[in-house]
Amino acid sequence: MAPAVRDLIAAFVLLNGVIGAVTYVTLLERKFTARMQSRIGPYRVGPHGLLQPIADALKLMMKEDVVPAMSDRWVYNLAPLAFLLPCVLVFGTIPFAPGLGLADLNIGLLFFLAVSALEIVGLFMGGWGSNNKYALLSAMRAVNQIISYDLPFIFAALIPVVLSGTLRLGGIVEAQQGGWYVAYPVIGQLGFLAYLVAMLAAENRVPFDILEAESELVAGFRVEYSGMKFALIQLAEYAHVIATSYLGALLFLGGWLGPGPGWLGAVWFTLKALAVFLLVTWVRWSFVRIRVDQILAISWKLLLPVTLMLLLAAAFVVAYQGGGGVA
């Protein structure tokens, strides 16, 4: 089989796997939050509500597609796609187990960060194209927040890069064979914590969800979307959260490393990623939304200096020990 054909098939399988997994992650989150609030959660469709995501998807596909009359039609219609594309593209560079992944790029982490930075384009296309004041305000807040939290997120994600001396995601996992980076004294724990906070903000989840803020902005930039386009936006959001969870598990929790035979690697990795996801969900349903100025203050006055210092500290440690780097 020609390599191009094989790659195409692999990409097709990965894409559908991601979409399927993401639909079920919504069920996991609903069940999890229901338990936190002493509810049962979805239970009627299928055993223990296991068919609920499929029912949801079917419902959304059959819904009427409403396009606001005064919207910027092209921008409005393209926005869900522009939002979804980067969110699923980042999965291409994640190695799920040794050799199991689409492309373990040399610049893996940079590719991940760069492509997910494009997500914002789809977001403000939706906010602008809807021609709705709530949607626009939400897009403004999103831009505001992303400018503030991209830097701490990148700096936190770069700490393992400095420690392992490679941008290749597979290489970062291999470098953790001696011990996961979350166990690295001080730098590891603080770095992971900073990563989690920056991740919450980058994913616009409570307590950083001012751009969605149901009570003030209805549903934020997606307020005018319905049917399949709404589904695509939701899908993209969850795909991005899952991708970032995988990245967190890879950078700090040793990726596919774990006891047992090699093929268990993908299972370990997925379990770690789900643990990160549930941690984030736990925070989401435990805290209240904070104000805009508080969000900006946390980023610029606390997170940015801390991650910068941690990065510097990691660089000093590596330089002192002579390990890590390319030399």
Binding site: F111, A114, A117
Partner: peptide, 12 residues
């Protein structure tokens, strides 16, 4: 590498 930086700094 330049591709990544281009995306991150300019497009993003």
């Amino acid at each position: 590498f330049l591709f990544g930086v281009q995306l991150l700094l300019y497009a993003g």
